[in-house]
């Protein structure tokens, strides 16, 4: 009897999983990427007891929902996706909203529950901050480095590609000095 009941419960629990797999994998860009194991298998949210109706036109809801990634797709937010897990996350967002939480609190709640993975961009913390620092440094320091290189080169020559007479004179004087020193 107990075993039968357990089976039924298992079956019941597997419904959302099966549902998620049956969903059209619309977001999969290529057939090959579909082969990737769904990361949602680990982060699968438990099916909520009663389904929260969410209103996709509600701005507060949209602002929160677009922060989270769709667990089964490759590049979309849950807002843009109608895969099973996205719908569940959207329902949870609605639930949290109806509890009166604000945007940041809900984001924190989801990060605690699913890890930073649920966010669509890396958090600016620890090692992940590098993802932000490196590009910014690249974009800001790159021109400076080029500028310095340009600055160094520019004094050597005038605008027509010929080394200016001042530079040549200076070089000659330097080498004269050096020769004097070397010859004593």
């Amino acid at each position: 009897m107990i075993r039968k009941f357990g089976l039924i419960v298992l079956l019941y629990l597997s419904i959302p999983v099966a549902f998620a797999q049956q969903e059209p994998m619309q977001e999969q860009d290529t057939p090959e990427s579909a082969a990737a194991p769904s990361p949602a298998a680990e982060a699968a949210p438990k099916a909520p007891e009663k389904r929260m109706k969410y209103d996709s036109n509600n701005q507060a809801f949209r602002d929160v929902a677009k922060e989270f990634r769709c667990p089964t797709c490759t590049g979309l937010s849950v807002l843009e996706s109608d895969a099973g897990f996205s719908i569940q996350i959207k329902e949870q967002v609605q639930e949290q909203l109806s509890l009166g939480k604000n945007h940041d609190q809900i984001v924190d709640y989801f990060v605690q529950r699913y890890g930073a993975w649920i966010l669509r961009e890396p958090p600016v913390k620890g090692f992940n901050a590098l993802a932000w620092i490196v590009p910014i440094a690249l974009l800001c320091l790159g021109p400076i480095v080029i500028w310095l290189a340009v600055w160094k080169r520019r004094v050597k020559a005038d605008n027509h590609g010929v080394r200016s007479s001042a530079v040549i004179l200076q070089e000659m004087q330097e080498s004269l000095k050096r020769m004097k020193r070397e010859n004593g």
Binding site: R69, G115, A116, W117, E121, G126
Partner: peptide
């Protein structure tokens, strides 16, 4: 870091 993160469109 053994921790999974996502880098998507907003980044």
């Amino acid at each position: 870091t053994k921790q999974r993160i996502s880098v998507q469109a907003p980044y």
